[in-house]
Design a binder for these strands. Structure first.
Lengths: 235, 235
DNA sequence: CGTCCCTTTGATTTATGTCAAATTCGGTGG
DNA sequence: CCACCGAATTTGACATAAATCAAAGGGACG
């Protein structure tokens, strides 16, 4: 392991999610980093607000563990879950250069969040790989949005849920065979909101999957039994 | 009128869409601008490709007249119209800092496009109001995306089309009374794709609107007869 | 004037929303 | 640790909006 002088980056050096984090590209630098620049492992209980739609964007949030939902509220007060963020991902990258948050982020479970000040990020945009890392993820986020637009209403409930599950497997880098197991931190209602379906439909679709032998469900725990059939399902 | 030395910005000075254009904030400057920086009034016939998904983003495109559709294609080859852009708007602002285009832009009619080189934009980001103008529009674009996610599948075909029409009225700054008239440059099929509906449903919904006395339709020409009823429709 | 394509209209099917009831789950307090 | 309560989830029955299939009408263009 490389010796790091800065006490903050030293901790980053040992972080299990460092390969997903832009702090990684800072570790090699002699840059001075203070607690005002990076705050590590801030713990939030379930249903905490990380940031609020419309509030000034002072920080960038990295999900070290746990998960969050991004909720957008329109003028009529209708709420739409825009996306979920899992461990190793950033919250709301897409509109990074904007002055305010475009949606509200709420934890789905007890989560550890690392907080990067925007001032720090912008000041160090020149550092090799630092901003590039963030921008690359931002592109993924845009693509994701477009996929969501594509997915909504042109796919059946069956397909939508399948796409949703495979997306989790992909994003969480789970085994892409029949041994993928994971927990869905969000409620069925949240899932339904995100997928543009009624909660009852989500429930029925899960049951349908189980009957077909694609997955097993035990409350929030999902185990993939036949991922190839699941992939066929969504095409 | 202010005297401008630069021959390119001088032309911008007389542009009917200058108040929507970031070039406006350049006019007061003594900055040197060449044809490599800004190309004005490039004419494209119907169904021309302005830029391609995945291609390097070398330029930013401003729709001076006409309109375009932004099409996203996924790995399976499914195409989704992400948005339409009308006169006075930019194409694909949301992902401005990305290195490649996130969707393909195609003209819906004969259009005049002004082309800003990205190199020029980034080099002059410090000029007062230049980048701010672009960023503000970018935020609008994100909000629009979120609204689209919200709109898809939770609203009926009736509402979706209503929202679509009111959006055009708003974006084109048409009279917000019962005298709004405009042309829909896109085909019903394009509309259907954008709205996530079957073309037949779009057609039926138009007929329904006409029967209700909300609008009159003559092929691509739309006239709003009762905008308040239309607004009630979408709530 | 005829052909082709886009659009409209009609008839039918189907997926999913809605309403309602049953069941399970999770948390709280005795 | 167990019992109870409220909330979330599942299941069922039914209604309905919109997709699909099919055919006819209308414009644009050669």
């Amino acid at each position: 392991m490389q010796f790091v002088f800065n006490p903050i980056l030293q901790r980053c050096c040992e972080c299990g999610k460092r390969s997903y984090c832009p702090a990684n590209s800072l570790i090699k630098t002699r840059i001075a980093v203070s607690k005002r620049d990076i705050l590590q492992n801030v713990s939030f209980p379930t249903d905490s607000y990380i940031c609020h739609q419309g509030a000034p964007r002072k920080n960038l949030f990295f999900v070290k563990s746990g998960s969050i939902k991004n909720v957008y509220t329109n003028e009529l007060g209708d709420q739409q879950i825009i996306d979920f963020r899992y461990a190793g991902e950033f919250i709301e990258l897409m509109s990074l250069e904007h002055s305010t948050h475009s949606s509200t982020a709420v934890t789905l479970e007890k989560s550890l969040i690392c907080v990067f000040s925007m001032r720090f990020i912008m000041a160090n945009r020149r550092i090799n790989g630092f901003l590039e890392n963030i921008q690359k993820r931002s592109e993924t986020e845009i693509r994701h949005h477009h996929e969501a637009l594509l997915s909504n209403n042109r796919h059946s409930a069956n397909k939508r849920l399948g796409i949703f599950l495979l997306d989790i497997i992909e994003r969480q880098s789970l085994n892409y065979d029949n041994s993928a197991m994971f927990q869905l931190a969000m409620s069925r209602t949240d899932m339904a909101n995100y997928l543009g379906l009624a909660p009852e439909t989500v429930s029925r679709t899960f049951s349908h999957y189980v009957k077909q032998g694609l997955i097993t469900v035990r409350k929030k725990n999902i185990a993939i039994k036949d991922i190839n059939k699941l992939i066929e399902f969504i095409v």
